[in-house]
Amino acid sequence: MSCPRSLPGYPPAGGRCLIMLSQGGFQSSRQNFTFGPWTVTAAKNHIMKSKDIERLSEEMNMPALPEMLFGDNVLRIQHQDGYGIEFNAIDSLKRVNNMSDSVQVACAQEWQQSRAESEHSKEVVRPYDWTYTTDYQGTLIGEEALIKVTPTEQRIDLDRLKVREQIKFFHEVLLFEDELHDHGVSTISVKIRVMPTSFFVLMRFFLRVDGVLIRVNDTRLYYEAGKDFMLREFSMRESRLEELKDIPATLYTDPNEVAPHLALKLMHCDRLQFPERTEQAAQ
């Protein structure tokens, strides 16, 4: 089956698409796109089965995991020499704080006290980060060679990304989502767009706890063809709702609209340097 060209973001020549129909009409898909020596893979599959979620919850020592966990979903960017980076749900959850003294617990206690009779507050058997906040920034892959990560003062040129360019490939992959028992939302997804001479990745964790706070953790990854490195920028933004009284409440549910209004808590950028040996061989 070929990719449906009528849908936005599906690859032109150079991309490959495999769609598998499964029960319930759900479409599992795996798309590959070639960009020079790089292969971009975007895979979407079913929500994890309850028994697998229970097993994973025990392994991670967490009382519960997100309601919708896509354990087999992945966005992978891999060089022909084997090294690269990928974004997946399981590794993102490994960065969730499951300790009782986490910063998020204070918010959780406040939230639970305001709804002392709610079903959710009764289910919590011990403090843990029920918001599933994660500072996950991707997983480096490769056997013989790995990308080297070093802090840098260099920043991604976001103005350049605003310039209109032909999009050769676009895809978005959801990793997990939880509605916090109808008291907000916690979700993380990753999307990529490939232009003629570069590609850009945005992974966004979005949290809204009704009546309490909004939080956005962004990981941006940028690569320009011909360079021997990528830039990765990570930011954490958060504001309590009383600090957002000057903006319409209708924006609270839209991560793109509300993010610029949140207070910046942390920002850092890394240089992801490719292995020198393989880069020289590829020239």
Rank of each mutant, 00 (worst) to 15 (best):
Phe274Cys: 04
His120Phe: 15
Thr131Met: 15
Phe199Lys: 03
Asp178Tyr: 04
Ser6Asn: 14
Arg95Asp: 14
Glu110Thr: 04
Cys269Phe: 06
Ser114Met: 12
Pro275His: 02
His261Asp: 02
Arg277Leu: 08
Gly9Cys: 13
Val124Ser: 09
Ile167Met: 00
Ala64Asp: 15
Phe35Thr: 09
Leu158Thr: 10
Ala106His: 11
Gly211Asn: 13
Ser92Lys: 07
Met62Ser: 15
Ile141Pro: 06
Trp111Asn: 01
Trp130Gly: 04
Tyr128Trp: 15
Arg30Gly: 06
Ile247Glu: 05
Ala259Lys: 13
Ser92Arg: 07
Val209Leu: 15
Pro260Cys: 13
Lys191Thr: 03
Leu266Phe: 14
Pro4Gln: 06
Glu279Ile: 09
Asp91Leu: 03
Thr131Tyr: 12
Gln27Thr: 01
Met230Thr: 00
Met99Gly: 02
Leu272Asp: 03
Arg208Asp: 05
Arg126Cys: 09
Leu202Cys: 08
Leu202Ala: 05
Phe87Met: 07
Glu144Thr: 07
Leu75Lys: 04
Glu123Ile: 10
Gly15Glu: 05
Asp254Gly: 06
Ser22Lys: 01
Ala281Tyr: 08
Ala42Tyr: 07
Pro127Tyr: 06
Ala145Thr: 08
Glu119Val: 11
Ala281Asn: 12
Arg208Tyr: 10
Gln27Asp: 00
Leu266Ala: 14
Lys49Asp: 13
Val194Met: 01
Gln166Asn: 13
Asn217Cys: 15
Met20Pro: 00
Ser189Ile: 01
Leu213Val: 13
Leu266Tyr: 15
Gln137Trp: 00
Ile188Arg: 13
Glu67Tyr: 01
Glu59Asp: 15
Phe200Ala: 06
Lys49Asn: 07
Val216Asp: 02
Asp210Pro: 03
Phe70Leu: 13
Thr197Asp: 14
His171Ser: 12
Phe87Asp: 05
Glu242Pro: 15
Gln137Thr: 14
Asp129Lys: 09
Pro196Thr: 01
Pro196Ser: 03
Arg126Ala: 09
